[in-house]
Amino acid sequence: MTSRVLYLFSSAAPPVFEVAKVITDAQARGFDVCLGLTPTAADWLAGSLDGLEALTGHPVRFAYKRPGEPDVWPKADVIVFAPATFNSINSWALGLTHDFVVGVVAEGIGKGIPTVAMPCVNAAYAQHPQFEQSIATLREAEVNVLYGEEGFVPNPPGQGRPDGYPWQVALDAAERAARPSL
C-alpha cells in the first residue's frame, strides 16, 4: 500500500519546535510527510533542518522553486497548516501569497486538496476584526479550520502553552480528510 502524502506546513509560533515529534506521529499513522515552513519558522529551526529532512526523506521547503525546476515532493493527499499564525491566516484568506506555504495552501483550495488549518494566536490577535473574517473566509472555502472549542483556543498574550498545542487534533482531522493514493 502506498503511503498517503501529508504536507505539514508550519508558521513561526512556539509549537513549531515540536514539529519533529509531529512528523514521527504522522509517519506512525501511515503518512509520507513533506515539511514546509514560513521563512521565519525556517530561521527558527535552522539548526534542525538537515535532521528534519533526514526524518521525512524530503527536502524541507520554505521558498518557491524557480520556474522550470522540477517538483521535489510527491502530490499531497492532505495538507495540515499548523501552527498557523495571525499573519499566515490573514494572508491566506486575502490571497497574499508572499510565502511558499501560503501560496501552496491558497492554490490547494482551487485544486480541491483537503486542508486542515489550526491557528496559533493569542487572545489579543484574535480580537482583531480581520482575524474572524479570515477564519470565516477559509471555512467558506472548505478549509477545516480547527479553531475554538474544536481545536485551538487562544491564550492571553504572554501566557502561551506550546506544550498544550493540540497537534493530535490536527493529525486526526488529516486522517479523516486524506484521500487514498492511487
Score class of each variant (00 low, 15 high):
Ala174Met: 01
Ala170Val: 00
Val105Phe: 13
Arg139Ile: 15
Tyr125Arg: 10
Ala173Gly: 02
Gly151Met: 00
His128Gln: 08
Pro157Thr: 11
Gln133Asp: 12
Glu142Tyr: 04
Met118Glu: 03
Gly164Asp: 15
Glu150Pro: 01
Gln130Glu: 01
Tyr165Phe: 15
Ile135Glu: 05
Phe152Asp: 09
Arg161Gly: 02
Thr137Pro: 13
Ala117Glu: 07
Ile109Tyr: 15
Val169Asn: 05
Ala123Tyr: 07
Ala123Gln: 12
Thr115Ser: 09
Gly160Lys: 02
Gly112Met: 08
Val116Glu: 06
Ala106Cys: 14
Val104Arg: 14
Ile113Gln: 07
Ala173Gln: 06
Tyr147Arg: 11
Pro129Trp: 09
Ile135Thr: 14
Ala170Thr: 01
Val169Trp: 01
Ala126Gln: 05
Val153Met: 05
Ile109Ser: 14
Pro157Trp: 05
Pro156Thr: 11
Val153Ile: 07
Pro156Asp: 09
Ser134Lys: 01
Gly148Met: 11
Pro154Val: 10
Ala174Asn: 00
Glu150Lys: 13
Ala117Gly: 04
Cys120Pro: 01
Ala174Pro: 03
Ala126Ser: 12
Gly148Trp: 11
Val143Lys: 09
Val169Ala: 08
Phe131Thr: 02
Ala141Ile: 10
Ala173His: 00
Trp167Arg: 12
Gly108His: 06
Tyr125Lys: 12
Tyr125Met: 15
Gly112Glu: 09
Tyr165Glu: 13
Gly110Cys: 15
Ala173Lys: 02
Pro114Tyr: 14
Ala170Asn: 08
Ala141Asp: 02
Gln159Arg: 14
Arg161Ser: 13
Ala141Asn: 11
Arg139His: 10
Thr137Arg: 08
Gln159Ser: 03
Ala174Asp: 01
Pro156Cys: 04
Asp163Met: 12
Pro119Arg: 14
Gly108Val: 13
Gly108Ile: 14
Asn122Met: 10
Ala126Trp: 13
Thr115Lys: 07
Val169Phe: 02
Glu150Phe: 08
Ala126Asp: 14
Gly108Gln: 07
Gln168Lys: 14
